[in-house]
Design a protein around this nucleic acid. Structure first.
Length: 658
DNA sequence: TTTAGGG
DNA sequence: CCCTAAA
């Protein structure tokens, strides 16, 4: 039998700059969370977004502290040398091309690994990213605030999607503005692969998330989107401002054509109907089907043994972080070490207090999160493995952490804020003088602790459970305090006509957050102050494989209420085509609205008919003009009568045949 | 894939 | 909106 020599690497964490993502409708089925009203911007949205913005970023481990086992020459070792990994540690290439991030790489990856597991290979992706970054790079060198606006403008050419890097001088930071009424709501970490750049346009009370990052040791780091506006209004969810690039490999090519096209569409708001029969109308895109979207998210993991290990050092200096090595021998110690740490994931949040504008009575809290940190992790891989497979392995480990679901914890004044329903005001987070210690933590999601790893690897990790001193003081404050200040809040320039905009250019699909984040809240909270519950350790110890299909697959689409304009388009189309030709209706009136499937249109018609039949008092949502509802009833009556006749005719024909 | 309906 | 049987 052949025993692999194994190289084991410990990772003390990656710094994770943010990625935008969408929040999710609070009203979805199975969603416990209530629709937040009025001024109460739920921090859930904020945190979800924050979490969703996390992008893996490289963290260099200088001084070559990596203790790669010095063995005979092996392909891996050689490769490691060649690639300079030993000197530089690992970094994770940000993939910013498009929504299902994996696929972008997959399409380019020429890796030798089998199947779709060959993600994040070689420098292929990163190189392209690099150039892409440079291409789209916004030029703000010193100002962090500068970028967002710029990107926003320049990026519109290709679906509101852009990446942006900041110059060397800029600080890595994440600014968050939120109202004092924001609630604390920890959330599950969203699926890494599920995130799609999204910009939620707010109505009045908004949360602003400006993100920026400084170049990482390996070059500038792209930020997909630098501005995220959140809203707690359900009805505004249809106003996501980001779209996936239509074509994979064109993600970085904001060609003028695309830009013009979009411009044209934006201007050309009305000719929906005249345009209907136009020859230029492109063929109905069958890729609209969500199933294809879903399949893109599939990210098969190979069964490898991956361990997490933890470092005590809270410093995010990087160089001082401990590198775990040779876990085969040290696994116990490492595991114990891990267990001593609060939770697997720590958010190394740098402080950046910007005080000023105190005079403002504006009730917004402004925080800057420098970076999050994901937990240390262990990877065990045969010595003769290729660098590519090493990369993939690391990728899997990291993905499993992030994609496996993380919670966001809020730490304030050294204590974990567990009441998600508390407003920031109530929690005292809005008081300047008490704001010396606010931070966020990334916590492993215990509900996803299952693993497919063998008992062996399990047992090797288990000791940390027993060694784990549960009584240890709350190590949770892995978060450095954040600067918070009350300041004036500059509102975003609202889109003049979000609905129409959305209607016309509404293929901005956003990734809903996991449906049952709130369900897991309690479980998470119950052990919030426990450094590392056994469950936790195990959860982190063994990378959860992609076993939780449900949470990946059962992503409910975001709710997007039909605007009056859309209703009118629908009614008009149905009047002409009838109620049984939804595909035609779709092509005729909603060809540009890629998020409206014919099933959606059919459903909308169904509800329209229902709405028209009930009394106006019973109707909810954006009121549909009575005139339209009347037309609905008329059209519906007409076509159902026609359909009935057809049916009768058909029946009599078949009867004759018999 | 598209329709039609229930959930 | 989702799910699916049936066409």
């Amino acid at each position: 039998m052949v025993l692999h020599k194994r190289l084991d690497y410990g990772f003390n964490g990656y710094q994770v700059p943010p990625i935008p993502r969408a929040t999710r409708s609070a009203r979805g089925r199975g969603n416990i969370r209530k629709k937040s009203d009025g001024n109460e911007m739920c921090a859930f949205d904020l945190l979800t977004t924050v979490a969703g913005k996390l992008l893996l970023e490289g963290e260099s481990t200088p001084n070559s502290t990596n203790t790669v086992k010095e063995e005979e020459d092996t392909s891996l070792k050689e490769n490691l040398y060649n690639e300079g990994i030993r000197e530089r540690g690992f970094f994770i290439s940000p993939i910013v091309s498009e929504a299902p991030v994996v696929n972008h790489c997959l399409s380019k990856s020429k890796d030798t690994l089998s199947g779709q597991a060959s993600v994040i290979t070689s420098s292929d992706c990163s190189e392209k990213l690099d150039s892409a970054e440079r291409f789209i790079n916004c030029e703000s060198k010193n100002e962090t605030g500068n970028c967002s606006t710029k990107v926003e403008q320049e990026a519109s050419g290709f679906g509101d999607f852009s990446n942006c890097t900041l110059g060397a001088e800029s600080k890595k930071q994440m600014k968050i503005d939120l109202s004092n009424d924001a609630k604390i709501f920890s959330s599950q970490f969203p699926d890494l692969w599920d995130r799609k750049p999204t910009n939620l346009v707010a109505s009045d009370n908004t949360v602003k998330l400006s993100l920026s990052t400084d170049p990482v040791p390996f070059g500038s780091f792209p930020v997909i989107r630098n501005d995220v506006k959140l809203t707690n209004k359900d009805d505004d969810e249809n106003s996501c401002g980001c779209a996936q690039p239509s074509t994979r490999n064109k993600a970085f090519r904001p060609t003028p054509r695309v830009g013009n096209f979009r411009t044209r569409k934006l201007i050309d708001l009305n000719p929906k109907f005249e345009d209907a029969d136009s020859e230029t109308r492109h063929v109905y895109n069958r890729k609209n089907d969500y199933k294809s979207e879903r399949s893109q998210r599939d990210f098969p993991f190979k069964k490898r043994k991956l361990y997490y290990c933890n470092s005590f050092s809270d410093s995010d200096g990087g160089s001082s972080d401990r590198i775990c090595s040779s876990p085969t021998k040290d696994i116990n110690r490492d595991a114990a070490g891990y267990s001593l740490a609060s939770s697997g994931a720590r958010a190394a949040v740098g402080t950046s207090i910007s005080r000023g504008a105190r005079t403002s009575s504006d009730s917004h809290v402004k925080l800057k999160i420098k970076s999050f940190r994901v937990p240390e992790l262990f990877v065990e891989i045969p010595e003769n493995a290729t660098v590519g497979s090493l990369k993939r392995t690391v990728m899997e480990a990291v993905t499993a952490i992030l994609g496996g679901g993380l919670h966001i914890g809020v730490v304030f004044q050294g204590k974990k804020v567990r009441d998600d329903n508390k407003t920031l005001l109530q929690a005292g987070i809005s008081h300047d003088d008490k704001l010396d210690a606010l931070g966020f933590t990334l916590e492993p999601n215990p509900s996803r602790a299952s693993s497919t790893s063998g008992p062996e690897s399990r047992s090797r990790v288990l000791p940390c459970d027993t060694l784990q001193p549960l009584t240890r003081g709350p190590p949770t404050p892995t978060v450095i305090c954040n600067g918070i200040r009350r300041g004036t809040y500059s509102a975003f320039s609202d889109h003049p006509e979000p609905n129409l905009n959305n209607f016309i250019e509404s293929d901005h699909d956003s990734a809903p957050s996991p449906p049952d984040a709130s369900l897991e809240k309690d479980a998470a909270d119950s052990r919030a102050l426990v450094p590392v519950a056994a469950v936790n350790a195990e959860a982190l110890a063994v990378v959860p494989m992609r076993k939780h299909k449900r949470s990946e697959t059962a992503q409910r689409r975001i709710r997007r209420p039909f605007s009056v304009y859309e209703v009118e388009a629908l009614v008009q189309a149905v009047e002409k085509l009838g109620t049984g030709r939804w595909r035609d209706v779709k092509m005729r009136a909603f060809d540009n609205a890629k998020h409206r499937t014919y099933v959606d249109l059919k459903d909308k018609w169904k509800t329209l008919v229902h709405t028209a039949r009930i009394s106006p008092q019973q109707r909810r949502g954006e009121p549909v003009p009575q005139e339209l509802l009347d037309r609905v009833l008329i059209a519906h009556g007409y076509w159902s009568q026609k359909q009935a006749k057809q049916h009768m005719k058909h029946q009599s024909e078949t009867r004759l045949l018999l």
